[in-house]
């Protein structure tokens, strides 16, 4: 009898995972060699036992419960995204507001106290005061005239 077949090849032979020529050669050998046949049977017993293990019971309505979970996660994900975005945007908005306030206060020259009183007396809005303040060349009469004119155009 030729030398024995390696156990690894016997295992692959059992699975038909060898080239056809090798399968034929091993089949011939095994039919004539009790030792290799015994080894092959032992490997087959292990495989058989594994195949006979029962299937794990899938709980009823698994697919339905899974689908519900996916939907819940999607809804939660939209909410989480919104909260995440808000948290990220909040400091940016606060910073932008601070910059605008700072720019506004630096670019507006202060009026002398008597001019502020005068504008308040004629009922000028802060925007009008600002406009008046931006033009240092304007006299009180000119500002009054401008305010009256602006008020009349609003009507």
């Amino acid at each position: 009898m030729s030398s024995h077949i390696s156990a690894e090849n016997l295992s692959a032979y059992k699975d038909r995972a060898l080239p056809p020529a090798d399968l034929r050669q091993i089949a011939q050998h095994v039919s004539a060699c009790a030792s290799c046949r015994q080894q092959l049977e032992e490997l087959q017993q292990v495989s058989l036992r594994l195949r006979q293990q029962p299937a794990y019971p899938v709980p009823p309505f698994f697919a339905v419960r899974l689908f519900n979970k996916i939907k819940m996660r999607q809804q939660r994900s939209v909410f989480v995204d919104f909260v995440w975005l808000s948290r990220r945007l909040m400091p940016a908005l606060a910073l932008l507001a601070a910059i605008m306030v700072a720019w506004h206060s630096f670019s507006s020259p202060e009026l002398p106290p008597e001019e502020e009183d005068y504008l308040a007396a004629v009922g000028a809005s802060p925007a009008m005061s600002l406009l008046a303040g931006n033009n240092e060349e304007m006299t009180k009469e000119e500002v009054l005239e401008f305010v009256v004119l602006a008020a009349s155009t609003q009507d």
């Binding site: 690894e8 295992s11 692959a12």
Partner: peptide, 12 residues
């Protein structure tokens, strides 16, 4: 191939 064989042998 080798691991399947060794797994079977080990289990045995």
């Amino acid at each position: 191939k080798s691991r399947i064989f060794r797994g079977r042998r080990h289990l045995r």
